[in-house]
């Protein structure tokens, strides 16, 4: 007698997969598809006019430029922070470790007004920076600071577990072969961390590109100076220019999807390189 090829001894496969696909389609896929359908009502030339308008292009430069810079800053300082949290014992360590996730938990609007309170002309830090000629609020620098804030945990939290899993033997071997501490870091530790560091960088960058709430308060949203791309979409919407808003959204979505693919392959790389030596999974 022939058996069905889809035999599964655990129950509920059809039910759960069916539900998953239905819910996913309804909440995520169909609505996202709507964006592309809406853009299809534009001719290519119209689309190009919208997405290449000087004011819009200025927002790309700001959004992508500051996101890259913020991710780079976070890669450096996030790595240091992760290193300190894993390698050193110091008072208050557990508290700091828990607070690293603050940007995940703190609503972006709250972060936005708090940063503005700090960096505005007469703010806590702004009052000292302004006389030095450093303007933060309502300038690209303000955008950068907000993006550093929201991106930091991505780097720390991707690098930290890899650092913890590192075998002391690796470094002992390097030392026994005559390597200095810096050489050991540069040639032994950093290559192991690299996939995770790049993943954290990419995650921070991807988040920064789409970020809205924490940026708009400190940015001041001056056209051609401190206007980010997501805000451009809102501006178009408020002018009832739905197709314009959608066209810009498509540009952002395409970038997001590309980043998602990049991150996925980076994470696969992290998983495969992190597994050598320590058998965390059975």
């Amino acid at each position: 007698m022939s058996a069905s090829r889809t035999f599964r001894v655990l129950p509920g496969f059809r039910l759960t997969l069916g539900y998953t696909l239905a819910y996913l389609s309804l909440i995520v896929l169909l609505p996202l598809g709507a964006v592309f359908l809406k853009t299809a009502t534009l001719s290519l030339a119209e689309f190009w006019t919208v997405v290449s308008a000087p004011r819009v292009v200025a927002t790309y430069k700001l959004s992508f430029g500051m996101s890259l810079a913020a991710a780079a800053i976070n890669a450096v300082f996030g790595l240091m922070l992760a290193w300190a949290l894993v390698r050193y014992a110091f008072p208050g360590k557990h508290l700091i470790d828990a607070l690293i996730d603050l940007p995940f938990a703190l609503p972006t609007a709250v972060a936005g007004i708090a940063l503005t309170a700090l960096y505005a002309k007469n703010g806590w830090l702004g009052q000292y920076l302004e006389p030095q000629g450093i303007q933060v609020a309502f300038r690209p620098l303000g955008v950068l600071i907000a993006l550093v804030f929201i991106g930091l945990p991505f780097v720390v939290r991707t690098v930290q577990p890899i650092l913890e899993d590192l075998d002391t033997e690796l470094e002992e071997a390097a030392a026994s072969l005559g390597a200095h501490r810096w050489q050991t870091f540069r040639h032994v530790i950093l290559p192991v961390l690299l996939p995770a560091l790049l993943t954290g960088f990419a995650l921070a960058f991807a988040r920064a590109v789409g970020e809205y709430g924490s940026v708009i308060f400190i940015a001041g949203n001056i056209p051609m100076v401190s206007e980010i791309t997501p805000l451009m979409i809102i501006t178009k919407l408020e002018q009832y220019d739905y197709t314009g808003a959608t066209a810009i959204a498509v540009v952002m979505l395409v970038v997001s999807f590309a980043l998602l693919l990049l991150i996925n392959s980076l994470q696969a790389w992290t998983a495969s390189s992190g597994k050598t030596g320590t058998g965390r999974d059975r």
Partner: peptide, 10 residues
């Protein structure tokens, strides 16, 4: 045991 089903046979 019945944890897997054969393609053919009893």
């Amino acid at each position: 045991a019945g944890l897997e089903q054969a393609d053919a046979g009893q």
